[in-house]
């Protein structure tokens, strides 16, 4: 085999700054080996376990009513949480990227805060507010409203853990774009909405999509935070990840890994979508650089 790995694709660079081919191959093998043991094997294990007894039991496990209702609950929770954070992310990015105001750096730092909080703590804080011993618990209980151990709590916990994603993608991109285009639109008579929809949105669409993809993956996959607020009522307040845990603890491995395989597919689709959007973003940056040259 003569195909020794090239150095960075730039052949004009002298060989003097490349590692010997043997070193290169060893580094590649070590790197890929690590990735194989820690990432590829777990992925393969999920599918191997899910199909251990063949395709029949696999499909049957997925058709089980509790699994179906867990899938529905996951879709509902993500379907509420992601649009909420999308609206917040756009509003926050507009305020932060387009204006200079007092307290801006504090706001930016606070938006990232949920990433620093352990998922279990994210669930715990809502129990402390809405739980029976919590601030609003007794008031809610009198009116028969359930937040904790019910859908609203699950949605809240999901909102918390996916809170920063969209804003985080949009703020740097909108800051780097500057205000000139929007200001021109305003001077030419566009109103605020028109300016946003026709000028800003086309410029930020890929970052926006990127943020949505990441927050959706996290929303559908969240476990710790949701686990604390869900109450684990089978078929009612179990999201798909929680249902995986229940099935696993019942030693129903085919069921658990079949449900897990759906989440694996979601993760793989997320990675593919992410790679495509990253590629589009890079192409856009390159096109901009060409135009301004």
């Amino acid at each position: 085999m003569t195909m020794a790995p090239d150095v960075g694709g730039e052949r004009r660079i002298s060989r003097s700054i490349a590692e010997p081919a043997l070193v290169r191959w060893i580094l590649i093998l070590v790197g890929l080996g690590f990735l194989g043991v820690f990432i590829i094997l777990p992925l393969a294990a999920v599918f191997a376990q899910a199909f251990e007894k063949g395709i029949g039991p696999y499909l049957e496990a997925l058709r089980e009513p509790d699994t179906v209702s867990a899938i529905k609950l996951t879709l509902i929770a993500a379907g509420i949480a992601v649009p909420l954070n999308l609206a917040f992310g756009i509003a926050a990015a507009w305020a932060i990227a387009k204006f200079e105001f007092r307290g801006k750096s504090i706001l930016v730092a606070l938006i990232d805060l949920p990433f620093a909080v352990s998922p279990v703590i994210a669930g715990l804080i809502y129990v402390l507010v809405f739980g029976l011993q919590g601030w609003l618990g007794p008031w809610l209980a009198e009116r028969g409203i359930r937040v904790i151990f019910a859908l609203p709590g699950i949605v809240l916990a999901t909102v918390f853990v996916t809170f920063p994603f969209v804003a985080r993608e949009l703020i740097p991109q909108m800051e780097s774009l500057g205000n000139e285009e929007e200001e021109a639109a305003r001077i030419l008579g566009a109103n605020g909405w028109q300016t946003f929809l026709r000028v800003t949105l086309p410029n930020i669409k890929w970052s926006l999509l990127y943020g949505i993809i990441l927050s959706n993956a996290r929303a559908m996959g969240e476990f710790g935070a949701v686990s604390v607020v869900s109450g684990h009522v089978r078929g009612e307040t179990n999201t798909l990840t929680l249902h995986v845990e229940v099935l696993y603890n019942e030693y129903n491995f085919v069921g658990a890994f079949a449900a897990a395989s759906l989440l694996c597919l979601l993760a793989l689709v997320t990675l593919a979508a992410k790679a495509i959007v990253e590629w589009k973003l890079r192409a856009e940056v390159r096109a901009k650089a060409e135009r301004s040259r």
Binding site: P42, L214, M220, G224, A260
Partner: peptide
């Protein structure tokens, strides 16, 4: 990042 933690756990 993309794989739910519960899935990574059982895998």
């Amino acid at each position: 990042f993309a794989l739910p933690t519960a899935v990574s756990g059982i895998a």
